[in-house]
């Protein structure tokens, strides 16, 4: 039976493509619209939320991905700042300035590295990776092997893929299998 909490994802290298499970990563979904919301987020995270579609912004602590005009996802390593969720929740969610949701348990981060990663992803996705692969920092939400994913082009030929935990093992197996044919 599928163990959703502990999917069988091991680090693997095939055809010069590295597929690794990135844990523990904290993921926080933030939603808001008004000016005060943007000011508060900027002060707490020391980062400006990306307003341009399919982009991201980063500093040494956090990566923030654009998800929609009023929705972003922040992710960072668990040991970096453990109380940031509480701070965001207190200053934004609790006073109805926006919405802060911890989605760390919902999504799993799979890191894919290598020269052929975009060929691998393209083989199972309707998304056109031409612009995405030439722009480090790009982010997108699309389908890979019919599964919803969030992709972040972290550095050259290095992509963080976020997928729902229950789909992660199936997607991982597809990635490993498909990398044989790239």
């Amino acid at each position: 039976m599928l163990d959703i909490l502990h999917p069988k994802i091991s680090n693997i290298n095939k055809n010069n493509i590295d597929i690794n499970l990135s844990e523990e990563i904290i993921k926080i979904n933030i939603r808001g619209k008004n000016k005060e919301f943007f000011t508060k987020i900027g002060k707490i995270l020391s980062i400006i939320l990306p307003s341009e579609p399919n982009t991201s912004s980063s500093n040494e602590s956090y990566d923030v991905l654009w998800l929609s005009p009023d929705e972003w996802m922040i992710y960072f390593e668990e040991n970096k700042n453990t109380n940031i969720f509480d701070q965001l929740y207190k200053d934004i969610s609790s006073i109805n300035l926006g919405s802060i949701t911890d989605i760390s348990s919902q999504l799993i981060c799979i890191n894919i590295k290598g020269e052929n990663i975009f060929e691998l992803l393209s083989s199972g996705s309707p998304f056109n990776f031409e612009k995405f692969k030439n722009n480090v920092g790009s982010s997108t939400q699309t389908l890979v092997n019919h599964i919803d994913v969030i992709l972040h082009h972290k550095s050259k030929n290095n992509v963080n893929l976020f997928v729902r935990r229950s789909f992660s093992e199936h997607l991982y197996e597809w990635l490993v299998d498909s990398s044989n044919f790239i």
């Binding site: 579609p53 399919n54 998304f127 997108t140 699309t142």
Partner: peptide
Amino acid sequence: PFCGERDQSE
């Protein structure tokens, strides 16, 4: 109008 050109399957 938000993300740009995408395939119908999305």
